[in-house]
Simulated assay, not measured.
Amino acid sequence: MWPFVVCGADVGLAGLFPGKALLTINGGAPRIVAVGTRTAEGVGVVAIEGETATIEVNGKRRVLRVGQNVAAQPSGAGPASVVLTADARGHFFTTGNINGTSVRFLVDTGASMVSIGAGDARRMGIDPGKGVPGIVNTANGQAQVSRVKLNSVRVGDVVLNNVNALVHQHDLPVTLLGMSFLNRMEMQRSGDTMTLTKRY
């Protein structure tokens, strides 16, 4: 069943190939869209030049670099925000993506940086060997990590570029959404919901 064409589409550019763009639409899994074609949501790829793609949404064209996104919102809309709901144990889990790859996050204000397990890092194409080695203290003792820079981290409508992160040598049960992301948010807690609003 085809999805309905919606008035607003939130489009992110996750990667570029010859004549094709890797797009995320409304937070979904990345998909390849060829130049000159249009998705069921009404998102078209007009042109690709160098490291940018020209995207058309609802008749409006925007030039995006890899890692950028455009939310088709009414003019005057406020800064991007996302509302998370706590689970039964009070933890805030959410699905987002890193460098265009879908990932499961746990909001963790006790983590200094976004923290990624070895397996997830491989899936995202992140090479820990190119990062800065270090040691961190965790609940399970000390762990060897590599500090890297993420091109983009996306949660809902919020996208941040150039986010510091730690890649662990072992797998983690979930990627920790730490303070290198959260410091750039306004965090408002109300009951079992948390609203993250992009500050800069």
Rank of each mutant, 00 (worst) to 15 (best):
R62I: 09
L16W: 06
A9M: 01
A118W: 03
S190N: 15
M113T: 13
V70L: 09
E41A: 02
F181H: 09
C7H: 10
I55W: 02
E49W: 05
V136G: 01
G117D: 05
T52W: 06
A143R: 11
A71F: 10
V70W: 08
M187K: 07
A143F: 10
M185G: 04
P3L: 08
R123L: 14
V163R: 00
T101H: 10
G19T: 06
G129K: 11
V83T: 15
E56Q: 15
L166H: 06
G191W: 13
D87M: 13
P173I: 10
A121S: 08
G117M: 07
V159G: 00
E56M: 12
S152I: 04
G125S: 07
T175A: 07
G28I: 01
N99E: 13
Y200R: 15
G156R: 05
I55Y: 01
D157F: 13
N26I: 03
A143V: 09
M185H: 04
V114A: 05
V103H: 03
K20P: 03
S75E: 15
G50A: 14
V103K: 01
G27H: 07
Y200Q: 13
V155Q: 01
G90C: 11
H91Q: 14
D10S: 10
A165G: 09
L182P: 10
I98P: 02
L16G: 07
L16I: 11
K60C: 06
A53L: 03
G36V: 04
N151K: 14
I126D: 01
A139P: 12
I116Y: 04
K149E: 11
L150D: 02
T54I: 12
M179W: 09
L13V: 04
T85G: 10
V148I: 12
G100V: 05
L160Q: 14
D120F: 04
V66S: 03
P79N: 15
V145E: 00
D157R: 11
V11S: 00
V57R: 00
G96S: 07
L23E: 00
Y200A: 12
F4H: 09
A80Q: 07
T94E: 08
R154K: 12
L196S: 06
Q142K: 15
G178E: 03
G27D: 04
V132A: 13
M185N: 04
T24R: 11
N69W: 00
D157A: 15
V45W: 01
V70T: 09
A86W: 05
L84M: 06
G12V: 00
I25H: 00
D10P: 01
N137I: 13
D87I: 14
G36W: 04
T138H: 09
S102Q: 12
V57L: 00
D120M: 13
T52N: 10
M185I: 05
L84Q: 03
S152N: 06
T24V: 15
I55P: 00
T24W: 03
T109H: 09
A80L: 06
V114H: 04
T101W: 01
D171S: 14
G178C: 06
L13P: 01
D127H: 09
P74G: 08
V174T: 14
V145L: 05
M185P: 01
